[in-house]
Amino acid sequence: MTAELTRDPDGTATQRRSGAAARGRLTRPGGVLPIVAILALLLVLIAIQQPDFFQPASLLSFLGRSAPIIILAAGQYFVIVSGEFDLSVGSLVTAQVVVAARLIDSDPGRTWPVVLLLFGFGLLVGLANGLITTALRVPSFITTLGMYLILVGAVYLWSDGAPRGGLSDEFRRFGRLAVEDVPLLGRLPYALLVLLAVAGLLLLFSRSDPGRTLVAVGDNPRTAELAGVRVGRAKTVAFVLSGLAATVAAILLGGYSGVSFQAGLGLEFTAITAVVLGGVALGGGRGALLGAMLGALTLETLFTLMNFYGVSGALKSTVQGLIILAAVSVGALRRR
């Protein structure tokens, strides 16, 4: 983008730092190199303390455990890169898990219809977020905050304050079980397969025309509109993707840790943190999906590292806060 500006023949375009154009794809602001470096550092620290972590089995199960938050971050990426926020994903995860438990009610026969229903619900919530934000012009911060209150309140109300029913083993399989006896790798968690499939699909989408349009919308909605993009529709698609991603995350999380009202607590902030850590600019228009997903993986690695070093669970958020502030400060100062 910088290169195009400086190439402008009439010379009226603002001259930006020409060094920025020369910088590679990976290191420019919004590139994935910084997050890869941080991730590598954390992995080295883990290797010092716990070399066993790199056994294929434990590494794969770690990736499986990280799948829900990586998928959530991927969904959040589309919303953030289009210039909006989605604060409702944590509550959506909780709602999905509780709804699934009550509807399935431990009856394996109802698993698939309910899964279908959950996707419908996720789509609907995303659609509502998107339409309220774009058609009614409510700032997405407020829209999704309101949706958060509504979902948490509704799910408590519907279940009279305590989760009821139960998930079928069929449902829990995705979050909990693994394909056994895979040659070379050993156990291959279903969650990891789901992650790979979702990540592949979303990466394809982010490189397609609609995916790139989303970034353009986030960068400058006015120019995008003048270029013929239906900005409202593009943003709504982003919210729907986030809602669907939250549904997948809910199915994995519900399977892994069972039914509780705490299932999705605080996940919206974790997802946003991961996205920002991955070099995606809040306010939209800059950043890569891969960076966002690596950001989520880095956060999970950090939490694992803290476990290995015996940091109290209560201090988790302090360390998380420090890391975010440090990473983002470096980014902000570098951008000067």
Binding site: F269, S317, G321, V328, R335
Partner: peptide
């Protein structure tokens, strides 16, 4: 001064305090 997005900056500071309180 540093130029961090206010959402992330104050969220980060909030998380620092949260950890202190919970611990």
């Amino acid at each position: 001064t540093v130029g961090i997005n206010a959402f992330i900056a104050t969220l980060g500071v909030g998380l620092l305090l949260k950890g202190y309180l919970e611990n």
